[in-house]
Structures are given as structure tokens and as C-alpha cells.
Amino acid sequence: MREISYARAGMEALVEEMRRDPTTIHLATDAPPSLVEEFGEARIRATPITENAFSGIAIGAAGSGLRPIVNWSMVTFCFVAMDQIVNQASKIHYMFGGQQTFPIVFRSSVGGGTSLAAQHSQSPYSMFMNLAGLKLILPATPYDMKGLLKSAIRDNNPVLSFESTRLMGFKGEVPDDDYTIPLGVADVKRTGSDITVVALAWLVHEALAAAEEMAKEGVSVEVVDPRTLFPMDNETIRASVQKTGRLVIADEAGPTAGAAAEIAALVTEDAATFAALKAPPKRVCALQVPIPYSPGLENHVFPDRNRIIAGIREVMAAG
């Protein structure tokens, strides 16, 4: 099978869905020439640098029959549009009694590892998990990127697509044929029997590397990638932990009230899963600080395969 990059897979999903559905439009502060050439300036809009305005425009266009795809570029810039995301997009279907659908995709890159310092190295998805009314995808492979983004574009709700900065050049197998991946379905990226590592985005790959390393020591690691943060696939995660009895959660975001905390809660509050635990769950997250610039500082803050390995060893030693 052919291999393409994570970024390319996102572009293929966008282009194929825009071909498939003439009501799709693209709003971003730049208009990629290849998109303008194929779809025209009417559908590929270069906006002023006004995230609050063009995110609101997307909501109004969606409520008027279009399917806007917004690209904030970095998640950094979505904070300028928080009124439209939090007060409007997440609630508008509900507070109007479900009378209108608002199909919108908001794309942005998340995570660090590229010395872009505090503002441009964020992973704030848990802030949006906390709202009712938004779906959130966080693909870790080119295959998942394409399949999830296509589903997001076809979904009748606002969907936030968080895309890992570190993975943009990462290559993987992607079929030529049209396919989608349903939202809310996790993927077991590696099966194992001793411990479950639920990992997000770039850390899926670090967890797989850690699993390879631990296998040499005779520890069988299962790696689960939720792929969608809302809706979260509680069943797959709980089933894995019931099987292994141990859990490490790896996330590039900080731990406080984060996705990792949510995953720990959904495991421990379920009686059957709790009863199967042999040791306390462990979070392996970024340190709770703004992300610093200098590589030595940045590397100190982010988790990686070595910290996942340390986490696995700690949980294995505990029971």
C-alpha cells in the first residue's frame, strides 16, 4: 500500500470531501493555491486574521446550509475565537431546541516539540472536552487522519480536529479508496496482556516504541489510541484495562483536569474495571508549566518513550 504523510492525508480528506459535496467551503487566513485552482475563490476564502469573525461566519454559514471547514492553523489562534466556539458553536444546536444543524469542522495543530515556545506549543483539548456540544478528533496516523477528518466533515455537528504538529511529516499506509473512520471508536494499536497504555497523538508512537522496549523485558504492553476525545470510546478502554489490570495514560498536555484525568476517571469509576485493577493508574503527561523555548527545557517538560517506560515499570512494580 502507498505511504503518505499525516499532513498529506489531511489534505486528501479535505480535497476529496470538497469534491464530493459542493456545499463545503474553506475558511482560513491563507488560501492554498492548489485549492483555489480546483474549487475557486468563492469556496476557498482567504480571510483577514480574524479568527473570532471567521469562526462566527462559519457558524452562520453552517446554519444557512453550507458545510464550512475552518482552519485556524495553530490551536493558539482559536483562543481569539473562544466566544464563537464556547458561547455559540457548542451550544447553538441545543439552545435553539435542535431546530437547525451546524456542520462545521475547525482544524488546528496541537502539541510541541518544535521550539515554538509557550503560545505555539499547546494541547488544550480538555478545555473543549469539558463543553457539551463539540466533537473532538485527535488522529495519530495518516490513516486515522484521513478517515477521521472525512467523518468529521460529513458530521452534522461542530467537530474540532486537533492535529499533531510533530506528526505532520510522519508517513504511513493510506489506501487509495474512499473510507471513513467513525467518530467515537478507539483503535488498539498494539495488543498486549500485562499493561494498557492509553496514548494520544504523537505519544501513540512513543508508546509503541516503549512497548517494543518492554517486550524485551517480557512485559506485554497493549497500546490503545482513543482517536476521538469526544465521544470517548469508554468501552474499548475499559475492556483493555479489564484484560491487563494495569493502566498508564500518556498525553502531551499537562495532567490537571486533562484528557488523561478523564480517562483515569472513566476507568476507575467503572466497578468492573476498578475491580480488575492490580495497581493504581499512572498519568505520564507534560509538566504543568507553559511550554518553554530552549530545546533542553522543552524536552524536560514533555513526556516521551523513556517516561512512558518509567511509568510502565512503576505500575508493574506496584502490583
Partner: peptide, 30 residues
Amino acid sequence: ADFSIGMLGANGIVGGGLSIVTGAGLAAQL
């Protein structure tokens, strides 16, 4: 709100509707 008569909603955020209805204008133009 009553989308069937083109009433896109009252809105509790001052200034919140300005960009939303501009999106409706974009849809009308397209």
C-alpha cells in the same frame, strides 16, 4: 430562533451575532 422564517436567533452575547449573520450573508452570496 425560527430558522424557517430566517430568524437566526436572539443571542445573549453582545456582539456575538455580528459574525454569525455575516456567515449567513456569505451563504446567500454563494
